[in-house]
Design a protein around this nucleic acid. Sequence first.
RNA 1: GCCCGGGUGGCGAAAUUGGCAGACGCACGGGACUUAAAAUCCCGAGGCCCGCGAGGGCCGUGCGGGUUCGAUUCCCGCCCCGGGCACCA
Length: 830
Amino acid sequence: MSENEYRPQEFEPRWARRWAEQWPFAALPAGRAKYYVLEMLPYPSGTLHMGHVRNYAIGDALARFMWMRGYDVLHPMGWDSFGLPAENAAIKNNTHPRTWTLANIAHMKQQDLRFGFAYDWRREVTTCLPEFYRWNQWFFLRFLERDLAYRKKGWVNWCPKCATVLANEQVAGGVCWRHEDTPVERRELEQWYLRITAYADQLLRDLDRLPEWPERVRTMQRNWIGRSEGAEVDFAVLDAAGRPGGEALRVFTTRIDTIFGASALLLAPEHPWLAAHLAPEQQAAARALAADRNGGFDSAAEPEKHGFFTGHWARNPFSGEKLPIWIANFVLMGYGTGAVMAVPGHDERDFEFCRKYGLPIRQVVVPEQGAAPAAALDAAFTGDGWLIDSGEFSGLPNRDAIVRMTAEAERRGFGQAKVSYRLQDWGISRQRYWGTPIPVVYCERCGIVPVPDAQLPVLLPDDVRITGTGQSPLAEATSFLRAACPRCGGPARRETDTMDTFVDSSWYFFRYTSPREESAPFDRAAVARWLPVDQYIGGIEHAILHLIYMRFFTKVMRDMGMVAFDEPVTRLFTQGMITRSGAKMSKSKGNVVDPAEMIERYGADATRMYVLFAAPPEKDFDWNDQGVEGLHRFLSRVFRFATRHAERLRGRLAAPERPRPRTAAETALLRATHQLLARVTRDFEERWHFNTSIAGAMDLVNRWYLLDGAIASGEVGAAVLGEVAGIFLRLLAPFAPFLAQELWSELGGAGEIALERWPEFDPELAREEEIEIPVQLNGKLRARLVVPPALDSGELRRRALEDPKIAAALNGRTPRQVIVVAGKLVNVVV
RNA sequence: GCCCGGGUGGCGAAAUUGGCAGACGCACGGGACUUAAAAUCCCGAGGCCCGCGAGGGCCGUGCGGGUUCGAUUCCCGCCCCGGGCACCA
């Protein structure tokens, strides 16, 4: 082989084909330590985008490294293949969602193969196939049995573009997570919910047991769960005669200490009490208030507070005072009890509301002990302090008062301590076709009846008209709709909503361990071997959606006795975004970089490697075509050097006996090589800063090019050159698997380089014979000493002071102090 | 408003434990090769100033302080950018 051009398009597909046909990692001996590397499974939208490439390049480099380090690695891939785009495409192209989806999967899998990602495709999981989704149904039934799935009517988020309901997690800032220009509407619907709130405390507490998750993600989850301690207090409603009736309105408050300052009760416009107590025109006004809350999402400002008096009164259980019952648009039905006490003196929102409507504003906490209240508050005082005008509790520090007053409420039977969560139950019903059918029927006689396990899967019917109108398409599929009640055999109607696709992704990574298991979602022994996931890699956008649902599912499985651990992922890595011209890539902006085009122009290796080189993987970076060209150039240099010296290198990549250096040039070359080895190994083990690994590799290759003379003269012999190339190619293999394999094969290496052992670091060879020590004068660099690395402090000090430049600068003066850090630096202070 | 990140040459970045700021790459400039260009190979390069030159000096990691022999790194205060949450009582 003579020196020639680097043309990845010629050899990359050849290896890709071979790896697709005979998976090289299949024959690993058992009994090694396991390592589970997982990348978030993609939605098969049609083509790979650069975000995928980054995600998989990181995971693949790690998986390949761990293989070479001797681990038994599980590195699977699958398809999150239910979901709305398939239905939209079906309408647009007049095809079936399945046809469209499976075609996309086939194409994207070809792209994955072309990139050389080392997945175990024998374990491929496709969530839209009945073999997978029947287990969604199985889990649903288990949840139902454990009272973790239930049906209720409630106010839900509705995206008019998706024409379906969204979970709270799928609404951000009042807009749909898929349609950022579409405000979410509120609708009242019957829905299936999963009782994630039953696990709120565990989900919160166990975040402390995930030290290897990014702090950012844990914080986001903590905020999302939103635990807050307070109390519930009942306010008796007064009847027409002004006496407390049988009814009471319950509020949640974290500031029971301020209850003597309450000016009103405020109810959410959707509060159920209102239905029976408001006149028709008031009901309409309440509905208008509810709608008012949805407006104004575009502006950063909060919507104006509105409300009105219902005409009813309640009694403050502590002070006995009469309080008007108001409706207020800023009170949320979904949090606490949907009712609050308005304490304008000590809550900013209540202050704003009460001032607007002329309700009394009183101060019942003062910042200093014994202080008098302000004559007129011009803002709420929300800090800690001492109670005043609060009956027997006056004079107490407010924190103590919270404890005492909660106990008092409990003793007198009108309240108790209560923990509230922002987190709400997970609504999983979707009024769409392309999803997992929810396995229940509605029987005229028996009501809601679960489909028995033996009748699973409830198959999605094929003959369905998809219109995108917001009706569950299954409701029109008569063959599907009609069912016999499993309990009484009588006529029954199937549930026509399908499940949120986040159900699939909550447990798919268990399925990889035993993808063909037919009697259970997974084989327990296989899961016990592989789980928890050692390293999960994906985008930050799933910080509170997928990543909280999967934790929830795992905890339920633990309670069911299916698994012995309660957190599914030991280490989480969230990669940064790739932007272009400073903006997120999107079709509408026309700034998308197509990976297929990059492969065509620069090859898979250069594309993958550029993505790793451009920035540390957790950081965002802006795409630069010339950057990929740079990586292509680097790989070309590797290729040309190897082919130019092919005759010398052939058969010498992995000599059984490690060659010893004979000349200074050989010593220097081996030293640089082993220093690089140490650097790349440490980057993998500790920091994942592949950009510096690759920079180091470039450095070494730059040295090679300066050695041509030394190679020609024999100063660098074939044995050492072969050793260096052998180490280098193995270091390159996790980043540029095609080129590493091509050169490995061309130069006489046996079999798959990916199955080679990671080279062994020799500290002896890496050791420097001489190092440069900077000498500072008053902290400023003035000279450099070249010394043996182990030179002791006394000698360093002596040589520094003898240095002509330092001596000249001292000019006979005695230094006040000489700082000597052996092996690092000398600082002479005068 | 609250909570996270981040701010270093023309650009992406590096500096691993408080110890030579700017490795590596991109873009750029010069040279070699070529009739020429491209490709390739070699060399140069933070800014300002002094010197014909070898070389030397000063400044420099968002801004202002502090700790230290020494700060991109630690502490305090501020500014700017990005992201998340946002009436959660």
